[in-house]
Design a protein around this nucleic acid. Structure first.
Length: 875
RNA sequence: GGGCGUUUAGCUCAGUUGGUAGAGCGCCUCCCUUACAAGGAGGAUGUCGGGAGUUCGAGCCUCUCAACGCCCACCA
């Protein structure tokens, strides 16, 4: 049977082969399917739906891995677990892609018309919809593909319509003409948070406006002279003495000669520019507000394409020019007319479209809005009272600040791809009806706008569970969901909206915990982007290192604070090496235990079920038990990076380096197998494939179809062996000390050494075989006051070990070595003594801290004393 | 302008109620010891960004300064 395992299991872990086999095994056995009729406790997560345009990137890899870890952990806690997969229709992004493809054929969407265009877009979406979720399978994602959803599918569309109509009927959705962020390229309004600001070098132009019925002029400052044709007033600060007498007077606009009033408004900053400001309500959000306050007209001079309008306000020679051309030309004309007083270079922020980076035009436009303030109130409360918890906590502040200052949300988009707004207009009268269905398709026409993509994703946790049917088994069983996992970049776009919508429509928070992780960056800390060419493709990493290696490395790099994660290709060698180590240690175990499928992990309730235990057995059982405890605690608290680190340390430094080595001397097969299986179970959520593959090959009784459904190990009181564990640590110290002597004196492993031990015979006599093998010790003698010339010495706790090294030892070197040790010990001792001599410390520090310090001091002092004696003998 | 984060070994970063600093990689020495060289054994390396304070005791708490980064706001 040993030969079988050797043949069957390669010495190197072949990740890709095993991973694809394992994933297929889970799929074939329907392992990820959630049962809404189960009476087990539910645990559910909805995936942040990736864009249908998307290709798997490292951000997904991290996000999906973390979700899968939580899902798999809870599955092993024997909960009924649902991970809901799906995609987002990604309004603008998808439409852009399809339009680009059309452009290659030389046609625009308008050539096709709405219906044909949508057909094409659906074709494209259907072709690409499954791509990214299929890629997620390479990550080992254990989501329930039978429930896969799309934000534009029938169910989601029904939910969207209902939400829209309800909000409208509650007065929380309104339509109106306001200044919005308009993208001239996308030809659509976008919301405030879809607008990013970039600093740009510009100018501050000072322009002189002559007074109408008086001598003199007023000079205003502007960064956008081309908008001046839409001016309706000049504003100054009411307390500005410079302009006190001008308030209420009229002035004449240069170039067009139109007369506008000079008004006073607090908004104007006296110290900026000239202290006088032109007011253009149709093209600047602040001016828009000023205009409303003063009941001023709104004059539109730039159109939806970003070009100067052809109307009475725009001079002939400027009509039809682009914004950029118009600016140049306007400046020229102003100069020509000698009204351009000054040009100062000025750095300012310019709004850009998040999707296409085109400069945003603030534009007066009729759009649909959601009144956010009333919706935000319960969403603020839910976080403040702890119904929803953010991890790390600091994001709560961020969320609250945004929510408390929330502004209305512009939800209409002048696109075709998306949920068309359920408002219908009478063909003759124009009367508007907002309803789930068109009341009379012959006489009413539906609003042509569609909704912001984030409107439907805001409903994701409940629209995917059958809502608005609140009796749907999924809704009843799995809503609200448990944890939401995502990056901080979409807290406002997505998380905030899910919370508001969830509370408004289901009266329940859509999840109880929001787990926010950092962003993946390249090795220099730069954001990864295709344009920078610094992306790392997770699929490549999986091919090269394996999925589990990728998952483990990413997990290991997660910090509790949710810092961004810098990665480079080579970093994943870490995970690959660990996987290989697990593979080989398991090979060893499988080759060295009886191949009967009789060992039943789940039936082991006490250490006695594992037979006679040596001190080493007790030590590893104690360590494993301790590890299980820590792992559960850390998983519960989302300290997932810590989980990876603890498992790594346990397996390598404890199980492999010591216990497996010890088992080569004297083995307890049951313990060897018990701890390996327990470890595999603990690790499974992070490295699902390798743990499953090994588990399936182990000579054990399997009580579930796969390790993925096995019971997760927990701390068990009866497995605590504190005293034995401590003793074993002493043994390890001894072996290390002896190895150290070997290294320092260059004694090869082929030369065996003898040792003389001065005390602790009880313990040491038990572990002579360990010393034989692991420190290559030949003879062990016990003698209280040995005095052997030409010896090396080491001290472990209160025990002195003499290593006679006749002929091998350089006395000078040994004295040097011992002195170095004393120096080191003294450096530790000094601060300790200082503390203990400090009365205040002794009096006010907790008893156990003082006791610990005393014990440490005594131990150090004893060691120093021993070494001093040693040196005396040597010299 | 407001808020947040980061600063710890050569590099990348951990460090959970304050008890006296750790890991991985890299580096140096030795070893193919029959699971694993994607491995094993041993070793070197830190005034924990600067300053002040609270405390018996500070990487951790308070204040302050500095550098870098992010988010929000959008003064024309």
């Amino acid at each position: 049977m040993t030969a079988d395992i050797e043949n069957e299991l390669n010495t190197t872990y072949e990740a890709r082969k095993i991973e694809s086999e394992t994933y297929k095994f889970w799929e074939d056995n329907n392992c990820f399917k959630a049962d809404s009729n189960s009476d087990k406790e539910p645990y559910s997560i909805v995936i942040p739906p990736p864009n249908v345009t998307g290709v798997l990137h490292m951000g997904h890899a991290l996000d999906e891995t973390l979700q899968d870890i939580l899902v798999r952990y809870n599955r092993m806690l024997q909960k009924e677990t649902l991970w809901m997969p799906g995609c987002d229709h990604a309004g603008i992004a998808t439409q852009n892609v399809v339009e680009k493809n059309l452009a290659k054929e030389g046609i625009s969407r308008h050539d096709l018309g709405r219906e044909k265009f949508l057909e094409k877009t659906w074709d494209w979406a259907n072709q690409h919809k499954d791509r990214i979720l299929e890629q997620c399978k390479l990550l080992g994602a254990s989501f329930d593909m039978s429930r896969k959803r799309f934000t534009l599918d029938e169910g989601c569309s029904a939910a969207v319509k209902k939400v829209f109509v309800d909000l409208y009927n509650k007065g929380l959705i309104y339509k109106g003409s306001y200044i919005v962020n308009w993208c001239p390229r996308c030809q659509s309004a976008i919301s405030d948070i879809e607008t990013n600001y970039e600093t740009e070098d510009g100018n501050l132009w000072e322009i002189s406006y002559a007074l109408k019925d008086d001598m003199g002029a007023i000079v205003i400052a502007t960064t956008r002279p081309e908008t001046m044709f839409g001016d309706v007033a000049i504003a100054v600060n009411p307390t500005d003495y410079k302009y006190k007498d001008l308030i209420g007077k009229m002035c004449v606009m240069p170039l067009t000669g139109r007369a506008i009033p000079i008004i006073a408004d607090d908004y104007v900053d006296k110290s900026f520019g000239t202290g006088a400001l032109k007011i253009t309500p149709a093209h600047d959000p602040n001016d828009f507000e000023v205009g409303l306050r003063h009941n001023l007209p709104q004059i539109k001079v730039i159109n939806e394409c970003g070009c100067m309008m052809k109307n009475e306000y725009v001079p002939k020679e400027l009509q039809g020019l682009t914004r950029e051309e118009a600016r140049k030309k306007t400046v020229e004309l102003l100069e020509l007319n000698q009204v351009l007083v000054k040009i100062t270079p000025h750095v300012h922020n310019v709004g850009k479209c998040q999707r296409c980076n085109t400069t945003i035009e603030p534009l007066l436009s009729t759009q649909w809005f959601v009144k956010m303030e009333p919706l935000a109130k319960p969403a603020i409360e839910a976080v403040k009272n702890g119904t929803i918890k953010f991890i790390p906590e600091r994001w709560e502040k961020n969320y609250l600040m945004w929510m408390e200052n929330i502004r209305d949300w512009c939800i209409s988009r002048q696109l075709w791809w998306g949920h068309q707004i359920p408002a219908y207009y009478h063909n003759e009268t124009g009367e508007m009806i907002v309803a789930l269905e068109n009341p009379d398709p012959d006489n009413y026409t539906q609003d042509t706008d569609v909704l912001d993509t984030w409107f439907s994703s805001g409903l994701w946790p409940f629209e995917t569970m059958g809502w608005p049917d609140t009796n749907h088994p999924d809704f009843k069983k799995f809503y609200p969901t448990s944890t939401l996992v995502t990056g901080f970049d979409i807290i406002f776009f997505w998380v905030a909206r899910m919370i508001t919508m969830g509370l408004e429509f289901t009266k329940k928070a859509p999840f109880s915990t929001v787990y926010i992780h950092g962003l993946i960056r390249d090795e220099h800390g730069q954001k990864m982007s295709k344009s920078k060419g610094n992306t790392i493709d997770p699929v490549d990493l999986i091919e090269k290192y394996g999925c589990d290696a990728l998952r483990f490395t990413l997990t290991y790099l997660c910090t509790y604070g949710g810092q961004d994660i810098k990665i480079s290709d080579e970093k994943f060698e870490f995970g690959r090496n660990f996987a290989n180590k697990i593979w080989n240690a398991s090979r060893f175990v499988l080759m060295n235990v009886e191949n009967e499928n009789s060992f039943d992990f789940d039936s082991i309730k006490s250490p006695s079920d594992l037979g006679d235990l040596t001190i080493a057995d007790k030590w590893i059982l104690n360590e494993f038990n301790e590890t299980a405890k820590l792992i559960n605690e850390n998983l519960e608290n989302y300290r997932i990076g810590e989980v990876a680190a603890i498992l790594y340390d346990f397996f390598r430094s404890k199980y492999c380096d010591w216990y497996v080595e010890l088992s080569k001397i004297e083995k307890n097969e049951k313990v060897l197998v018990y701890v390996l299986e327990g470890f595999l179970r603990l690790l499974h959520p992070i490295m699902p494939h390798i743990t499953e593959a090994i588990w399936q090959k182990m000579p054990i009784k399997r009580n579930s179809v796969g390790i993925l459904k096995a019971v997760y190990p927990k701390y068990q009181g009866s497995f605590e062996f504190k005293t034995d564990a401590k003793k074993m640590e002493t043994v390890f110290e001894t072996i290390k000390a002896l190895r150290n002597v070997r290294a320092e004196f260059n004694i090869p492993l082929s030369s065996k050494i003898d040792i003389v031990i001065d005390k602790n015979e009880d313990l040491y006599s038990q572990i002579i075989p360990y010393l034989n093998r692991l420190a290559k010790v030949n003879d062990v003698k016990f003698e209280a006051n040995s005095n052997i010339a030409q010896s090396a010495y080491c001290n472990v706790a209160d025990t002195k070990i003499t290593i006679p090294l006749k002929g091998l030892i350089d006395i000078e070197l040994e004295i040097k070595r011992q002195n170095k040790k004393i120096e080191k010990l003294n450096n530790e001792l000094k601060p300790l003594e200082a503390r203990l001599n400090n009365e205040k410390f002794v009096n006010s520090a907790p008893k156990e801290v003082v006791e610990k310090a005393i014990a440490q001091k005594q131990e150090l002092a004893a060691q120093i004393e021993l070494i001093n004696q040693t040196i005396k003998k040597l010299s």
